[in-house]
Design a protein around this nucleic acid. Structure first.
Length: 423
DNA sequence: TCTGGGGTCCTAGGACCC
DNA sequence: TCTGGGGTCCTAGGACCC
């Protein structure tokens, strides 16, 4: 029987901020989304204040201030660096690791025979990550990924478990299923939970007991698999090789609404350049590009416009200049005067390995020059910062559309000048 | 009173995840 | 005044084909 573990950093972003600010231990800490819009991470103290996940910041600002909470803008450079340290530690501890998200990984523990071994392993993972990286994690263990997830949830809920829960034992599993509301099951969101409630399904146990036929009468096949996994039959394998990306999206809400075309072009250009950089990191080429614009749906009195348009490229490419030209052409077509846009985005699709869309007239020499140029630009920007080499339309001014990050912490681990000083 | 049927491909929209 | 960003998968429905 397979054994999976799910390791997950507790309140990752909040814990990351606190790592370099020991003065914040015991104080509520929250981290905001891009543009300082919503709450995306809360320390245990902040959760205890009743601050909901995803809540717009302005609604809880007063409450947080009164409680003496520390508030941070998202510092992705810091989180990405700490994440890779956590993952490297896990890779040293387990034979196979699937990096599931920035703060979570599945481990394949098949071969750890006894239940005592499994518990001990969970505690060792906690101790190692605490010691090597300094972050708190919880470990959930079970015969399927869905049960490992559920175990992780149980470990977080119940302090008695000291951060590790193992559901290999059938009796322990039955107790955990009974105690878990169905919307806390991996793959069951609020929509499905509401519809399940109409059938009298309220807990993970209820879902596990629902017959596959009954599920398929009302729900998609994904839910049938979830129920199967809750019963202990694995439908999802560990995927240690990441699947090739299918699309790349770069979009942002603007710091302030954009009403003029030059500012919009500048923003779209910036997103296209970043999307192209990320495309080259994957080693793929894109054969389709979409641009979308959005006005603010919350301002119902203002005219709304949420267009999107897609172009197929005759030749798949990873050259920023090609992608930028297409993106700007689409943006120009979409833009309508008299609207206050609050968001735009560039999406690359039909990603594929380079050179598979054979074009009879492709100029190999030109392609090679393009690859050399892109490589050079990427190398310079990696070394000297993203704004070292830019394209004319990006302008890099202090444009009003750039996002707000009023509470940004230093780049403690990725910039020499921000290195914390001890003593 | 009237109807073909089955396969494939594409797209949009909805649901989920962190 | 202030409401994130980046992904995946599934399904239904339409177009098209034989």
């Amino acid at each position: 029987m397979p054994v999976y573990a799910l390791v997950d950093v507790n309140s990752f972003y909040a814990s990351a901020e606190r790592l370099f600010r020991p003065d914040l231990v015991g104080r509520p800490v929250v981290v905001l989304s891009n543009n300082d819009g919503c709450i995306v991470a809360r320390s245990a103290e902040a959760k205890a204040l009743g601050v909901p996940m995803g809540e717009p910041y302005f609604r809880v600002r007063d409450c947080l201030r009164a409680a003496g909470a520390a508030v941070f803008s998202s510092n992705y450079a810091l989180y990405a660096d700490l994440s890779s340290r956590v993952m490297r530690t896990l890779e040293a501890l387990a034979p196979a690791v699937e990096i599931y998200s920035i703060d979570e990984a599945f481990l394949d523990l098949t071969g750890l025979d006894t239940l005592t071994d499994t518990e001990r392993f969970g505690q060792e993972v906690r101790a190692r990550i605490r010691g090597d990286v300094g972050l708190p994690v919880c470990v959930g263990i079970g015969p399927t990924k869905t049960l490992a997830k559920l175990a992780n949830h149980a470990a977080k809920q119940d302090p008695e478990r000291h951060g590790v829960a193992c559901l290999r034992d059938p009796a322990a599993r039955a107790r955990a299923l009974r105690a878990t509301p169905v919307n806390a099951v991996w793959g069951v969101g609020q929509r499905l939970a509401d519809r399940l409630a109409e059938l009298g399904v309220h807990t993970a146990e209820d879902l596990a007991n629902l017959s596959p036929r009954r599920i398929r009468q009302h729900f998609p096949v994904t839910l049938a698999r979830t129920a199967e996994e809750l019963r202990g039959c694995a439908c999802h394998d560990l995927e240690s090789e990441p699947a090739p990306r299918q699309q790349i999206v770069c979009s942002r809400t603007f710091g302030t609404p954009v009403r003029d075309e030059p500012a919009l072009r500048e923003a779209v250009a910036d997103y296209a350049v970043r999307a192209a950089e990320r495309l080259r990191e994957t080693g793929q080429h894109a054969a389709a590009l979409s641009v979308f614009l959005r006005t603010d749906p919350h301002r119902t009195a203002e005219p709304q416009h949420m267009p999107t348009a897609t172009r197929r490229l005759t030749i798949a490419t990873d050259d920023t200049r090609d992608l930028l030209a297409v993106a700007l052409r689409i943006a120009e077509e979409l833009w309508r005067p008299g609207h206050a846009y609050i968001k735009a985005g560039v999406m690359l699709g039909e990603l594929q390995a380079p050179g598979i869309s054979g074009d009879l007239f492709a100029d190999d020499a030109a392609r090679a020059r393009s690859a050399d140029l892109m490589q050079a630009v990427d190398a310079i920007n990696r070394r000297h910062g993203r704004a070292a080499v830019t394209y004319g339309v990006q302008r890099r001014g202090r444009a009003e559309w750039r996002m707000r990050r009023d509470y940004l912490s230093p780049a403690y681990t990725t910039r020499w000048t921000d290195l914390p000083v001890v003593g």
